[in-house]
Write a protein that binds this DNA or RNA. Structure first.
Lengths: 158, 158
DNA sequence: TAGGATATACTCACTGGATGAGTATATCAG
DNA sequence: CTGATATACTCATCCAGTGAGTATATCCTA
């Protein structure tokens, strides 16, 4: 795919998940090229501007795969942004993948929840605002866990 | 108060709400001074390093008040970070203030929720990932609303 | 049929939040 | 005696993100 098309597709398929400007897409693509995970081939076109066709390098494929299977840290926003994005790519790759990464993500959230609850219990009663903040984070994460458990019903393997 | 003390107090009272580095506190303070909302008076100390005593200017007091009474946009993270901070300052100022800003914040959240639900209903069924993302945001915001309604029980006026 | 909006495809200068390390002195605990 | 902690602040640097710009072709509409 070339940058322009990638940008368009992501921005329409995931526009309620995260927002990015076109120039920022190109910035990131430039950096990925510097890192050597994608490579660009210049293509001339008549009637339309030139474009750079982007392909994943071997290194890029390996890093993508690693990213795809690494659970997102158990924080509400990160899960909305990164986990849903992983799910998006997983769903395009195979029918069995989504449920696998859903289960692993749920497990990570359960671990984070335990940690947050422990931190909450350790907080002295007079730390009112820290308690309020942690309480909110815990509730958010519980909600996220419910949501994610519900999510697997959208991905059936047959 | 001077920068060092302000930094310490905020970072302990609100450490579960948001994190900031010491240098970033000073960065922000420098900017606030440039904007003319605070002014610094240099004080020499023997036995200890010099310090800058910071005071709110008239403009600063006005802007602080405006900020304090302006509901935080209805987004989960912003509410955790900014609303709890407003609540923190409100609680230090008067016993009746917290409940007032809690009620106004709750109202803002209800409005945002309506908006999100409408956007969700308008999304075509085939926009799976956008629907998942919006669904999660809606659940998060519902949770936030429950939390905030519960919060007022910690602030009694007598 | 002229004119303006939209689509294709990408570049670039700049801002501003955030990091992390550094500086200098005093005190306190082991 | 010495090494950690407290006081108090500075500074260079990075890098994500913005917004405007460029150039051409096609499509819609009055």
């Amino acid at each position: 795919m070339h940058g322009y098309e990638l940008d368009k597709q992501l921005r329409s398929s995931l526009r309620e998940v995260w927002r990015i400007s076109q120039s920022q897409t190109y910035n990131i693509l430039k950096n990925l090229e510097k890192e050597g995970v994608i490579s660009a081939t210049h293509q001339e076109q008549d009637k339309k501007p030139d474009k750079d066709l982007l392909t994943l390098t071997e290194k890029g494929k390996a890093e993508f795969e690693y990213w795809l299977y690494t659970p997102t840290p158990g924080r509400a926003r990160a899960i909305r942004v990164e986990f849903i994005t992983r799910l998006f790519f997983a769903a395009h790759l195979s029918a069995s993948l989504p449920n696998r990464i859903i289960q692993e993500q749920a497990e990570t959230i359960r671990t984070s929840l335990k940690d947050l609850r422990m931190r909450f219990d350790l907080l002295p009663m007079d730390q009112l605002f820290n308690r309020l903040g942690l309480d909110l984070r815990i509730r958010q994460l519980e909600t996220t866990l419910n949501w994610i458990e519900n999510t697997s019903s959208f991905f059936h393997e047959d």
